[in-house]
Computed example of a mutant assay.
Amino acid sequence: MAVGKAKIAQLGYDEARPAPVVLISGPEQFLADRAARTIRETLRSADPSIEIHDVDASGYTAGELFTIASPSLFAEPRLIRVTGVEKSSDAFIDDAKRYLEQPADDTTLVLRHAGGQRGKALLDAVRGAPGHALGAVEV
């Protein structure tokens, strides 16, 4: 779990829960996977019709996040799991920062950052957002 002067809620891996934006940070892959699985299972138990989308931030193309997060005809809830944020394309960083300004309703965005400096501006944007306004948490 990252430590710092974050404004968003800081949770342990074993406290992972859904939120509009969840940042899972740190190099502990096993614990990060378990936290992501807990979030998925919690959302699925609340609504089995949840749509789950996996995005690789390193191969991301501009606009993809907004396409996935846009409301569907039946308004199913969504879980968008983004891996490799530490290797993300510039397009992903730009789109994710824009997404943070107005997260989609009934959507949980999970950002997985394993460490390093790449994507730091995005992490700072997530961490610096008032947690009550964005509804973000960090695991």
Rank of each mutant, 00 (worst) to 15 (best):
P18A: 02
A19G: 07
A19Y: 04
P20R: 14
P20I: 12
V21H: 08
V22P: 06
V22S: 03
V22N: 01
V22W: 02
I24Y: 06
G26W: 04
P27V: 07
P27E: 09
E28H: 13
Q29G: 09
Q29Y: 13
F30Q: 09
F30S: 07
A32Y: 09
A32R: 08
D33Q: 15
D33M: 14
R37H: 11
T38K: 14
I39E: 07
R40F: 13
R44N: 13
R44Q: 15
R44H: 15
A46T: 07
A46D: 08
P48G: 11
S49C: 07
I50E: 02
I50F: 01
I52F: 13
I52P: 05
D54R: 07
V55W: 01
V55K: 00
A57E: 01
A57F: 00
A57V: 02
A57L: 00
S58R: 00
G59R: 01
Y60E: 03
Y60L: 01
T61M: 11
T61E: 12
E64M: 04
E64L: 06
L65M: 00
L65Q: 00
L65R: 02
L65F: 00
F66W: 04
F66C: 01
F66P: 11
T67F: 13
T67L: 11
I68N: 09
S70E: 03
S70P: 10
S70R: 08
S70D: 04
P71I: 10
P71V: 05
S72A: 10
S72I: 08
S72E: 11
L73F: 14
L73D: 10
L73P: 11
L73I: 13
F74H: 14
F74M: 15
F74G: 15
A75Q: 05
A75P: 00
E76C: 01
P77K: 14
P77L: 03
P77T: 08
P77I: 05
R78G: 09
R78K: 15
R78P: 08
V82R: 06
T83G: 00
G84T: 03
G84S: 14
G84A: 06
G84K: 03
V85S: 02
K87A: 06
K87Q: 03
S89H: 04
S89G: 12
D90A: 07
D90N: 06
D90M: 05
F92R: 04
F92D: 02
F92K: 07
I93W: 03
I93H: 02
I93T: 08
I93Q: 08
D94P: 15
D95F: 09
A96E: 04
A96S: 04
R98P: 03
Y99S: 11
Y99V: 08
Y99K: 13
L100K: 10
L100P: 10
L100E: 09
E101D: 14
E101S: 15
P103G: 04
P103S: 06
P103T: 04
A104E: 14
A104D: 14
D106N: 09
D106F: 10
T108S: 06
L109K: 01
V110N: 00
V110S: 03
V110R: 04
L111E: 00
A114N: 08
A114Y: 04
G115P: 11
G115V: 08
G115S: 12
G116N: 06
G116H: 08
G116S: 09
R118S: 05
G119D: 01
K120H: 12
K120F: 09
A121I: 03
A121S: 07
D124Y: 11
D124W: 07
A125Q: 05
V126F: 10
V126K: 10
